[in-house]
Amino acid sequence: MNRQPLIAHIPALRRYARALTGDAWACDDLVQDTLERACANWRLWLAGSDLRAWLFTIMHNLYVSQVRHRVRQGDLAHPLDLAELDQEPVAPASSADSAIDLQRCLLRLPDEQRVVLLLVTLEDLSYAEVAKITGVPLGTVMSRLSRARSRLQELMDASATPPVRSVAATEPVAPPLRRLK
């Protein structure tokens, strides 16, 4: 066995991690951790089984534990800090503002919804495979996918019409009454 099979999956792992974290460095850290974990646990991978699904499962578990860790530390601002995204466009300059908007809206989805939406959309995995990777029932995958698509649509529609950008950049809820500052 040469290195090719594993290396062949790195670009897809990176793209997924990039969209998931919205941060180039966090993305490569996550991919590196995934490869290292794969290295430590090679004997758990059954030769001939789906290497891609196995790698995405490892990455998913690492991501979930990272998120839990951040929640415990009360550090939800990083790397999901939206204000930071303003300064550091995560999308290449050529693909303009819409890509930055999309990434920002994506990061506002709850983690579990973003995971399902991205696995289905970017990796063309079947719903059953996504259920296996994320360790939840098929019905849960379906409902998360449905909520993710509707919510993302709402967020994108809201960002298309220039909103009153609050400083904290939280939910784009327009107050019924606005006070002049």
């Binding site: 066995m1 594993l6 290396i7 790195i10 490569d28 590196q32 490869l35 290292e36 794969a38």
Partner: peptide
């Protein structure tokens, strides 16, 4: 750095 990590994994598998 990622190529190196992948190399390690393949090595371990071998």
């Amino acid at each position: 750095s990622l190529l190196a990590a992948a190399g390690q994994a393949q090595h371990a598998h071998l």
